[in-house]
């Protein structure tokens, strides 16, 4: 199978994730979309590794997974805390930090 198809899929997934981050209000969904974008890039890395015939892309994919796992821990903790104080998980309602 043509490995470029994986890159196309990755681009599609990344666009869906980006659109979700920009358009959805629920913090959990926005978060999931961010994960989707990360995994889209992972897919691209792995595809590129396959196409180049070396392991660099695969190694970076592992790094991304580690960072994403750490990010999930902190991100979810923040979202839960915001929900507890504001009784809402909407990203638009948490807008106190501004001019």
């Amino acid at each position: 199978m043509n490995p470029m198809n994986y890159v196309y899929l990755s681009a599609l997934l990344f666009s869906i994730g980006a659109a979700g981050v920009l358009l959805r209000r629920n913090a959990i969904v926005v978060f999931m979309c961010v994960e989707l974008m990360l995994n889209a890039t992972n897919l691209a890395f792995v595809a590129f590794a396959r196409m180049q015939g070396n392991l660099d892309g695969q190694v970076i994919a592992f790094f991304v997974m580690v960072v994403a796992a750490a990010e999930v821990v902190i991100g979810l903790a923040i979202i839960v805390t915001i929900f507890r104080t504001r009784r809402s998980a909407s990203v638009d309602s948490a807008n106190l930090l501004k001019y």
């Binding site: 980006a18 981050v21 920009l22 926005v30 990203v91 638009d92 807008n95 501004k98 001019y99």
Partner: peptide, 17 residues
Amino acid sequence: FRRLQTGFVRSYALSMF
């Protein structure tokens, strides 16, 4: 310029994109 800092996460995200 200060007005650009709206406090909406999604607008920051948009500018980043």
